[in-house]
Design a protein around this nucleic acid. Structure first.
Lengths: 175, 175
DNA sequence: GTCTATACGCGGATAGAC
DNA sequence: GTCTATCCGCGTATAGAC
């Protein structure tokens, strides 16, 4: 896999369309146009719709792993990192975030996307447990973050929680 | 609207298929067969795919309103009710729960379903705020419940939280 | 009311030119 | 590598019989 810049542009377009319009409504034609190529051009890089999906899954997994590593190295800690980015990214829209939202939307239809999503969520839960010690605290923080994702997907924001991340972490810990 | 039993059977089938296979992959043919009628028969009751969706949305809204009323009247309280049912229903599978999951899955593609979902979530948040007083506590419990829904949708369970609902409520409250 | 038959359009995929 | 042209199958919706 050399450096197929065109492949990435196509995946970018696909991701973007899934995020905005939802899966299944996205046609190869639409992805190709958005990426600046023709349907035939797209199908040269990805032999089928299935292959295109697989490409997105692979990239989403990679981006998530990197993000998880960044969280582990973050001074604020994994918990604050996870909650903060969950709340902020809907606006900022980093590549990881977009890929993750696309993943979840695809998960409503594609079993492979659902599996990839579970893998991501499990990774965060593991890192949180590692950091917080108490499993319930970890599961709570994780669930709050997951809830924020669900809201983002249906078009709801979570500023209330975003403004009180430290307090949220304090409350979720054992008393 | 008299008592169109056939309409309901069709909506049941549609809901079930959306929950299991995801939206958009569900064809009118499949819904008709699952409901025990032909495509033509289905289209007599619902003039178009759009009308079928609208039917599901309407029913989901109604079921959710009823559930919200039940929660408000429940001795355990709204918070415990919301968390408990979120965790348990994936197994039990009540009509409200199925309708809600279908709603969320549809929300990834259909703006109207997204709006209906936001309306439902807002209703729970309002009831929780009313009961708990503190807005942050309410938002926290709501977010945890929402997170549990997200997990259910991607095929993850949340037994850990389900086994500690009282503790969850205790921790989310102000200290 | 419910069915069958059919028209119609669209999306995925292939073939082959450039 | 990328495009155009084309084929094929499927899903929605309509028409009309029963």
């Amino acid at each position: 896999m050399p450096r197929p810049s065109q492949r990435d542009r196509i995946l970018d377009a696909y991701t973007e369309l899934v995020v905005t319009s939802g899966p299944e409504t996205v046609t190869l034609e639409a992805v190709a146009t958005a990426a600046g190529v023709s349907k035939g051009g797209l199908l040269y890089h990805f032999g089928s719709r299935e292959a295109l999906l697989e490409g997105l899954l692979e990239r989403a997994r990679g981006l998530n792993d990197d993000d998880l590593a960044a969280a582990r190295a973050a001074p604020e800690g994994v918990a604050a990192y996870y909650l903060r980015t969950s709340v902020d990214e809907p606006v900022a829209g980093s590549p990881v975030y977009r890929a993750t939202v696309a993943l979840i939307k695809l998960a409503t239809t594609e079993p492979r996307a659902a599996e990839a999503t579970r893998r991501c969520l499990a990774g965060w839960r593991a890192a949180l447990t590692e950091e917080l010690g108490d499993p319930l605290s970890a599961d709570l923080v994780a669930a709050v973050g997951d809830g924020i994702y669900l809201r983002a997907i249906v078009g709801d924001s979570s500023e209330g929680l975003g403004a009180a991340i430290d307090e949220v972490i304090r409350r979720t810990s054992p008393r």
